[in-house]
Design a protein around this nucleic acid. Structure first.
Length: 279
DNA sequence: CACGACACCTGCCGGC
DNA sequence: TGCCGGCAGGTGTCGT
């Protein structure tokens, strides 16, 4: 559910509400979401900690923390999985089902992580240490910010025999792209998702990189997609689903050529593309 | 090593 | 109305 634009939206919304707060109480839900350390050390480390900056890395949310039981550089790491949401509410607000973490803050707010399917993850520690311990994956570069140069995309595609879409979904290649924006980027670049990466021209590789940047920036400007249960950091629905060109539109006319969009499966994921606009 | 298949969960939607 | 199958934005693990 949440890809880079959704996670970015949540981080932007929550950042001002989390800076310089103190955690006065911790409540955990299902323990299996706590991936590091164990639930007891996790709760103890958070209790009494002071919050700092909030940032995004790929689809991960990182909240900087300082506390008596925390190593320097410690962060609370949150991955939303397919169905997770993160928001700050007033402490008195009724708790939704599947709330797996509630941090009561001295200022009267409460940071809540809700995740019905429990595909999400929570970790506590210094990011480089968590990677070294094998608790966090090594991620590829961020596709936004300065953006990745054409030569980078050309090299990445040339190196792989996999379908272009499989590359876009691989977080070790580039961090943050998921199923929606992989399809959207392929459409915008005029490349079929199932096309073998190393059979793309250099111009197509460059176009793919620029297309991914464009669809991600557009989605961020729209505050993320709002398919199904997505909520941004304020608990409201996003609006980018109206802007999607292909995702969720199998059988509907292509916005560019009016031919019916084709639904299929690529890299084990539902995929939609236009047979005439994408080659 | 690189890749594909599958497992992990609950909720929701459409069809019968 | 109610039940059931199918499907969902992600990723870790296992086998080839």
């Amino acid at each position: 559910m949440p890809e880079l634009p959704e996670v970015e939206t949540i981080v932007r919304d929550l950042r001002p509400r989390l800076r310089g707060e103190q955690v006065v109480h911790v409540r955990l839900g299902h323990p299996s979401l706590i991936r590091y350390p164990g639930p007891t050390a996790f709760a103890d480390g958070l209790t009494g900690a002071t919050t700092g900056g909030l940032r995004r890395r790929g689809k991960f949310i990182l909240l900087e923390l300082r506390g008596p039981r925390l190593v320097t550089g410690a962060v609370l790491v949150v991955h939303l999985g397919m169905s997770g949401s993160l928001c700050v509410v007033e402490a008195g607000v009724a708790e939704r089902p599947h709330t797996h973490l509630a941090l009561r803050l001295r200022g009267g707010g409460e940071l809540r992580f809700v995740d019905p399917r429990r595909f999400g993850r929570l970790l506590l520690g210094a990011p480089d240490e968590l990677v070294r311990l094998g608790r966090l994956p090594t991620l590829g570069p961020e596709p936004l910010g300065p953006g990745l140069p054409d030569a980078w995309w050309q090299a990445a595609l040339r190196r792989s025999h996999r379908p272009v879409k499989a590359l876009l979904l691989d977080q070790r290649v580039v961090a943050g792209c998921g199923n929606i924006y992989a399809d959207e980027a392929c459409f915008r670049a005029g490349i079929r998702p199932q096309r073998r990466a190393d059979r793309c021209t250099r111009a197509e590789a460059s176009a793919l990189g620029r297309a991914l940047e464009a669809v991600l920036w557009t989605a961020i400007a729209n505050r993320g997609s709002s398919i199904a249960s997505y909520r941004d950091g304020l608990g409201a629905r996003g609006s980018a689903q109206r802007a999607l060109a292909v995702y969720g539109r199998a059988g509907q006319p292509c916005s560019r050529c009016r031919a019916p969009l084709r639904g299929t499966v690529v890299a084990q994921r539902t995929t939609v593309y236009c047979r005439s606009c994408q080659r």
